[in-house]
Simulated scan of single mutants.
Amino acid sequence: MAHIVLDNCIRCKYTDCVDVCPVDCFREGPNMLVIDPDECIDCAVCVPECPAEAIVAEEDVPADQENFIPLNAEKAPKWPAITRSKAPLPGADDLNGTPNKLPFLEDY
């Protein structure tokens, strides 16, 4: 089982999680990160690093966000790997915790 990046990452894109990932499984979209389920080793070291609390084990994905399981799998092969942290998006702290951000997801 992989870990999944959820809705709260959208428009925040904190990257604290990528520095601790031992297998470089994070992929970077324009305004969100996803986890490549084929690379994730389910170590969970990224979970406490996420200021947005947007990373959970696949079995712990809330029912209203189960669509993020296939979304992570779909975007991971298309988006480039990110292996070093960078500044979050402008306004991330203000948007952290805003629900239902999926309509704002950007793609390349």
Rank of each mutant, 00 (worst) to 15 (best):
P103D: 12
N8M: 03
A92M: 06
P51K: 07
V45G: 01
C46H: 04
I35V: 10
I41S: 09
D93T: 03
P80L: 05
V20Q: 07
K101I: 02
P88V: 05
R84H: 05
P70T: 06
K75N: 09
T98M: 07
D94W: 12
L33F: 11
I55L: 13
D19K: 08
I55E: 09
D93F: 08
D64F: 03
C25H: 10
C50W: 09
P48F: 09
D42P: 07
A44Y: 08
N8S: 06
V23W: 05
N100R: 11
P99L: 06
C43L: 02
P48Q: 00
E53G: 00
V20W: 08
C40G: 08
H3D: 15
P70E: 13
T83W: 03
E28I: 11
N8P: 04
C46E: 09
L102A: 12
C12P: 04
L95S: 09
C17N: 01
C21R: 13
V5T: 12
P88S: 02
D7W: 03
K75I: 11
V20R: 08
A76Y: 01
G97F: 06
V61C: 08
D36A: 00
L71F: 14
I41W: 08
P70Y: 00
P90T: 01
C40S: 07
C17R: 03
P77S: 04
E53A: 10
H3R: 14
P51V: 00
C25E: 03
N8G: 01
C50P: 07
K86A: 15
D36I: 01
N96Y: 01
K75Y: 15
C43R: 04
I55V: 14
I69S: 12
I69P: 09
P90G: 12
A2S: 14
L6P: 03
D94L: 15
A63R: 12
V34D: 02
V34S: 03
P51E: 05
F68E: 01
P37K: 05
P30E: 11
N31P: 04
L71D: 02
K101S: 08
A57K: 11
A63G: 03
V45R: 12
A54T: 03
P22A: 00
Y108D: 15
A54E: 09
R11G: 07
L33Y: 05
C21K: 07
T15N: 15
A73E: 15
V61P: 11
E59L: 07
P77L: 03
D19W: 01
E28L: 15
I4S: 00
C40I: 04
I69L: 13
P62Y: 10
L89S: 11
